[in-house]
Design a protein around this nucleic acid. Sequence first.
DNA 1: CATTGTTGCATAACAGCGATATCTATTAAC
DNA 2: GTTAATAGATATCGCTGTTATGCAACAATG
Lengths: 217, 217
Amino acid sequence: MSPRRSDPATKPALVDIAARLLAENGPQALSTRRIAAEADSSTMTVYTHFGGMSGLVREMVREGFSRLQERLTSVRETADPVADMALLGRAYRFNALANPHLYAVMFGGSSLAGFSLSEEDRQHGRYTLGNVAECAERCLVSGRFRPGDAILVAHQMWTAIHGLVTLELGGYLIPPYDANACVEAQLVGLMVSAGDDWPSATESVARSLERVDEIEM
Amino acid sequence: MSPRRSDPATKPALVDIAARLLAENGPQALSTRRIAAEADSSTMTVYTHFGGMSGLVREMVREGFSRLQERLTSVRETADPVADMALLGRAYRFNALANPHLYAVMFGGSSLAGFSLSEEDRQHGRYTLGNVAECAERCLVSGRFRPGDAILVAHQMWTAIHGLVTLELGGYLIPPYDANACVEAQLVGLMVSAGDDWPSATESVARSLERVDEIEM
DNA sequence: CATTGTTGCATAACAGCGATATCTATTAAC
DNA sequence: GTTAATAGATATCGCTGTTATGCAACAATG
């Protein structure tokens, strides 16, 4: 009873290599052989550390959610919770644009790559909503939002921004209305749909635009 | 100079076989060999008809948008354009739930499967927005929506519903708030964000729920 | 009807993939 | 130091998309 321990640094190193290959050379560059070549080892390392390619992808999904959460938590609380909420939306989009391939794996990899997320993975993804839900709660208690359920409001924010970002990354937005214009309109619309009145929402969204340095990590 | 012509029925037959394999056995069942086996032919048929696997996938994307458009055009115009718009949103979701794998390929396949949509394909996808834009125009001229641009409004509808459906198919919606509840809230919120007042929006969305037989093809 | 040019499609092969069995060698515990 | 257990290398299997080759079938021509 005395196992051989592997270098604890190789596992995150493999995830880094995989993420870099994915970002630089696209999804089809994610092969055990290329990863092994980059890591100066054999294809077996992927199996000993992650149990297979899907295990590595799962780890990358966790990494992706981790980056997203980090970006979201960089939004500071201010006296204007609606502006904070708008900045959360911008942060969500920034993260997706900064890690497009990783983002695609996070939300589209399960149904395409033949691997399925565990319930634990999904739970991890849902915790992302925590920051948004807290901010929604502050919007609710401030009276800016119509009385309702914070998590439901957070859901609406999440799904709307997620859809916008997904279509933007896919190149589906119609040219005259570029993504930035859609984002501004979407953010204002979301705040109004949650109960804020139009002038206040417009002003808060504009104010959040001046705080983008908070989320440009 | 006298070429041999192939059976013009085999090409759509191959697309049908591919769509069936995708729907019944998942994305990893989409292989040239399995398709050839189902069609009682060789793997070369895929190359002579589509120039490769990516060409077949592209054709499936077109098929997917065709089904979506068919479902959207099944929404009849009524005197309540806001209810029509809400029903368009329901139709969009119905189509996605009826063809989940196809839907995943339509919007997530480009960045994952190593194949890229041409600008023509994207243009075809954007035409989907036509129905929504027309309905948005009717909502605008009726005075129910705040004066603005119909296409921009259509964008907001599309992105929001698309995001909701994507997260629903991915299993990311938090249990106590099931997808149906999110849809109702999302639809009402969208109409309000476009300018309709809350009671009218609630009533129109509820009225659209009674018309789901229009879109259950 | 025969010829001929062109093409659809089958066969076989190639490069690459994920995964696995086997083996070696390293390492921690006793 | 001995020993047990695991990390990792090598080779292999079955699968994938793709392509070169060759044959057979069809349309246009005479």
